[in-house]
């Protein structure tokens, strides 16, 4: 793989320039190099390190931490089957098995491009993608393919390989993985107005509210103003250790759980 071209180098610098401290640009910069080169290459790591004035080892440490960065290439269409519990139970496990069988590959592998195929596909199982009300869910290049079935998923990957247009059920016509990565780097592709406002499940409650004439209160209700809670009562009310650790006064080192958390390090 050759070095990054001048345009990409310019865009990498542009990303770094969006932030008060340029290192903040690293995540979107890695998305951009994936768009340019199809994966995170050693050359790209060097380039990011040079622009951000940090070591290549530091860039590499970040690139390996996040699952969306790929050291080996993916297909033109990267298919992610949600196999977190809810989707798995609803059929995600069966979809993933069927696709592995059909594509004759394992997790995180690219299927061979057959003669006549326009595009390649790769397969991975993913964690909850915040679309559980559309389970089982498949993501293609990080667009939603809602309410999938094993057969439907096989047909979809075949359409993709053949080069037919495939639309996201809640989004635009699918673009390639490299095009998608460019948007994630902060360079919009003009497809924002495609697709609906919301899918059917998103509207389930709203439709009932419309039918029954239910709304939020129209006029400010007269009731008493809620008393401003004290810091102590806020700590008592907040119901998780997350909230507690958020509220512990920075000066109170006596807090047990914070001390424990330090010990645990």
């Amino acid at each position: 793989m050759s070095a990054l071209d001048d345009k990409t180098m310019g865009e990498l610098r542009e990303i770094a320039g969006r932030y008060p401290e340029k290192r903040s640009g690293l995540l979107p910069m890695l998305h951009l190099v994936q768009s340019a080169q199809g994966k995170v290459t050693p050359e790209a790591i060097e380039a990011c390190a040079e622009i951000l004035e940090i070591s290549a080892a530091e860039v590499s440490g970040v690139a390996t931490f996040y699952t969306m960065y790929k050291r080996h290439g993916v297909g033109d269409f990267h298919v992610g089957v949600c196999t977190n519990t809810l989707c798995a139970v609803m059929g995600g496990d069966q979809i993933f098995e069927r696709l592995k069988q059909h594509l004759e590959i394992g997790n995180d592998e690219v299927a061979d491009k057959r003669q006549g195929d326009q595009y390649s596909v790769s397969l991975e199982h993913v964690e909850c993608n915040a679309a559980c009300d559309y389970a089982p869910v498949v993501m293609v290049n990080w667009e939603f393919m809602d309410n999938q079935t094993p057969e439907g998923a096989v047909q979809m990957v075949e359409s993709l390989r053949a080069g037919h247009d495939v639309r996201s059920t809640r989004g635009p016509k699918l673009c390639t993985w490299r095009e998608a990565e460019r948007v994630l780097a902060g360079f919009p592709d003009g497809r924002v107005d495609e697709g609906p406002s919301a899918g059917p499940a998103s509207l389930a409650g709203l439709e009932i509210a419309r039918e029954r004439g239910w709304t939020a209160p129209h006029v400010p209700a007269p009731g008493a103003i809620a008393p401003t809670p004290s810091k102590e009562s806020a700590v008592a009310e907040a119901d998780t250790s997350r909230a507690e650790s958020e509220t512990i006064d920075e000066s109170s080192s006596a807090d047990e759980s914070a001390a424990e958390k330090r010990e645990a390090q």
Binding site: D193, S197, G205, L206, A209, R212, G213, W214, T215, A216
Partner: peptide, 15 residues
């Protein structure tokens, strides 16, 4: 009312 759309209230609006 049982349901009180505020944030979701826009979701069925055109564009």
């Amino acid at each position: 009312d049982t349901l009180t759309p505020v944030l979701t209230d826009m979701w069925d609006v055109e564009r």
